Amino acid sequence: MLSTTPRTTIKKASHKAAVEQEKLYQIIDQSLIAHIAVNEAQGPVVIPMLAWRVDQHVYIHGANNSRLIRALKKAEQSCLTFTLFDGWVLARSAFHHSAHYRSAVVFGQFETVEDALEKDRLLNHFIEQIAPGRTQEIRLSNARELAATSVLRIPLSEASVKISNGDVKDDLADLDVPVWAGMMPYRTVIGPLKAAADLHESIPTPDYRAPYGDRWHEHAHQG
């Protein structure tokens, strides 16, 4: 169960709130992009960042001199959002058009991962999450590259999830309007892989479908 705090209590359309922690994990693991809010001298700013989850934390990485990384290292309160857009809901009236989506909001403070070996492990974990087995084949980060990279993490102890997946909600008076109504689904399809222009022809194409299930292009086309 997700924790309930004043910041995670959903007030608008509260019936769309989800409390299962697994729902939170699924949204983060499929999105892999967090929009992160910080307050700067010029005002608030939201920056999208690659993000990945390991157990109960979300991790981000960036250059040491990145303005976002510098701001987050001050351990001030921040907020992350993740969103998966699943499609349009097309109603009989303009007012009741809406969308299907899954979203998560995480509140808290970032902390810096200082140990170089742990940074290396976490960065490799992200690569493995994207393409299983790849860290056994590529050149791994060297000491200079690790020193130039900051890895930060935030706990998933304060988060909320909102899911919209309902049917068309037309007014009774509009049910006789002679227009099609229903859902227009969106699907994220992964693959097929596209080789780099300078890739030697003798190198075989790897198989990275395992993490993606029915989002892998071959399964998606069959659906």
Results as ranks from 00 to 15, higher is better:
Leu152Asn: 06
Arg92Asp: 04
Ala220Ser: 05
Val58Lys: 01
Thr112Phe: 13
Lys119Ala: 06
Lys162Arg: 15
Leu199Ala: 12
His217Ser: 10
Leu117Met: 11
Val105Tyr: 00
Asp115Trp: 07
Glu218Gln: 12
Gln129Thr: 08
Ala173Glu: 14
Ala196Phe: 09
His57Arg: 10
Gly87Val: 07
Ala195Ser: 04
Gly133Glu: 05
Gly62Arg: 10
Phe107Thr: 00
Leu80Trp: 11
Arg53Trp: 00
Ile69Tyr: 15
Trp216Asn: 00
Leu117Phe: 13
Ala131Ser: 14
Arg92Gly: 09
Asn65Leu: 15
Ala63Asp: 03
Lys16Phe: 13
Met1Ala: 07
Gly182Phe: 02
Leu24Thr: 04
Ala197Ser: 08
Ser66Gly: 14
Lys162Met: 04
Thr135Arg: 14
Ser31Thr: 09
Val45Ile: 12
Pro185Lys: 08
Leu123Ser: 05
Val19Tyr: 11
Leu175Trp: 14
Ser141Arg: 13
Leu123Trp: 07
Leu50Phe: 15
Ala197Leu: 09
Lys11Arg: 14
Arg153Ser: 10
Trp52Tyr: 03
Val54Asn: 15
Val151Met: 07
Val58Ser: 06
Thr8Arg: 02
Gly43Lys: 08
Gly87Lys: 07
Gly213Val: 08
Asp120Met: 13
Glu40Ala: 01
Val54Thr: 05
Ile33Asn: 13
Ile127Trp: 10
Trp180Asn: 02
Leu140Ile: 03
Ser157Phe: 06
Asp176Trp: 15
Met49Asp: 02
His15Trp: 15
Phe95Val: 03
Arg153Phe: 01
Thr149Tyr: 03
Arg144Val: 11
Thr81Glu: 03
Leu32Asp: 01
Val46Leu: 02
Leu172Thr: 10
